[in-house]
Design a protein around this nucleic acid. Sequence first.
DNA 1: GCCGAAGGTGAGCGAGCGCTTAGCGTGCCC
DNA 2: GGGCACGCTAAGCGCTCGCTCACCTTCGGC
Lengths: 208, 208
Amino acid sequence: MSTAEETAGGEVAPWGEVTPDAARRLLVAAVEAFAERGYHATTTRDIAGRAGMSPAALYIHYKTKEELLHRISRIGHTKALEILRTASRREGTAAERLADAVSSFVRWHAGGRTTARVVQYELDSLGPDARAEIVALRRQCDAEVRGILEDGIASGEFDVLDVKGTTLAVLSLCVDVARWFSIDGPWTPDEVGALYADLVLRMVGASK
Amino acid sequence: MSTAEETAGGEVAPWGEVTPDAARRLLVAAVEAFAERGYHATTTRDIAGRAGMSPAALYIHYKTKEELLHRISRIGHTKALEILRTASRREGTAAERLADAVSSFVRWHAGGRTTARVVQYELDSLGPDARAEIVALRRQCDAEVRGILEDGIASGEFDVLDVKGTTLAVLSLCVDVARWFSIDGPWTPDEVGALYADLVLRMVGASK
DNA sequence: GCCGAAGGTGAGCGAGCGCTTAGCGTGCCC
DNA sequence: GGGCACGCTAAGCGCTCGCTCACCTTCGGC
């Protein structure tokens, strides 16, 4: 059996690590509800209903509604960081690694837009402690991209005026894909990934 | 007297068109509350309290809480469209007009991040009719940017593979500024505008 | 000086919220 | 096959929500 499964929207949802089964069903239901209506507009009754359970069942597996968001956010950010790290640490020129990072990061945001939307846009609904933990993961994502840019500048591949600002812009561009991407639109996640990799290489002065 | 005033955060808020005075105070209070906590997490008691009025006073000037969001959204999108149109229709090369559009659009999203955050990220909280009206305004924003790109391609200034995708990416990059920009950060709105104008010119193959 | 319109308030309604609790069925251990 | 831990449900508590309503002030017109 695979650790990934498909939701109704054709997305890949790697929630295999969440056990037991009832806890995973509740978490998947919460991701869908949060993505559709936002954290504050989602009720615990709605989450439990989507998972085919009574409202009280939620509290057997999670202490509060916020704990659900926290778990989703941590798993999502960990996955995002892993994607960037894999691309950053592979072999190849800085341009190849940057293109790989951007295209795979964008593919994740487009293909898993339901999860990505929750992960990227519901951060402010977390309490201070949980938010601090997630913000630390974000800074690591930032560091991975900045590292590739610095490598490319050192090797003469890239021409970048403001490393910090360009890093932010690259990540911002990728993240915002989750906001506008639709599976009914004219592009597949792969196509957006390829388009964005090209745009980013141009931004750093590395286009052929 | 000017039609623009300053909020506590040093932002420009052109709400002079909203009358009478009590209605404007309520609207400004709603913008701040929605930006801080999101539409659904904001209570009508909070909005009225910020405006120094009782909860019931809100309903003298607005039929529902959603009408407040609708008015804010329409005014904000109209202003955004006006900014893009002004840049698009001035004289100059396509590169100059694109740089102007991006830098002024970004300045608006950074300087008026409170308003921009509500305008750009609370769209889904509107009902179907109101949302349709706002989406139409967005499409006009899209058309302005695409128009500049097509002019630049026709004149040979730009080298763009996918006009539709690049238009979307340019707008996405600018809009997302409202999500991450902070007045306490290392940049002024002007600096981000200049940085982004440079990045976008590179994206369309027009950098010097 | 009386009157009605405009703009405000305090109290509170019905609904729905996050979450709790008492108790029920089921399978596992001995 | 009796006891019990576990996963779950039905019912509902205390609270706060968006919104309403009866009433109060202020003020210009005559």
